[in-house]
């Protein structure tokens, strides 16, 4: 599992009209372990999951998400943003074992 983790992906249009709602779709590889399951020897497997997802546009807060272990493995997430300015969307995922990933995508507004 541990070798198949991270690789965040962002999909969104690269251009939009001013005021238009843009949909952002994201995906990241992560086991999202609940801490409630046991390994073959009956020992609990420690919880390992993404706890926060933070989206900013040009450094300004856009969306803050807190996740529990109830979010599926390899979490998919879609959200929206109103296109106002040219700039860069940045999304940062952090897990409870100091895992930290980010992805960026540029938007041109006409």
């Amino acid at each position: 599992m541990a070798d198949n983790i991270g690789n965040p992906m962002l999909r969104m249009p690269s251009t939009a009209k001013k005021g238009e709602l843009v949909e952002i779709r994201s995906l990241i590889m992560h086991p999202m372990l609940t801490g409630l399951t046991k390994d073959k020897s009956g020992k609990l497997i420690p919880a390992h999951f993404i706890q926060t997802v933070t989206a900013t546009f040009n450094g300004k807060p856009l969306l803050d998400i807190d996740w529990s272990t109830a979010v599926s493995a390899n979490p998919f997430l879609a959200f929206k943003m109103r296109a106002e300015d040219n700039g860069t969307l940045k999304v940062v995922w952090k897990d409870n074992q100091n895992g930290d990933w980010s992805a960026e995508s540029k938007l041109t507004v006409s």
Partner: peptide, 12 residues
Amino acid sequence: ASGQAYIQERIK
């Protein structure tokens, strides 16, 4: 700035 309170995700 979100423009719409909209989320799509998958849960257990």
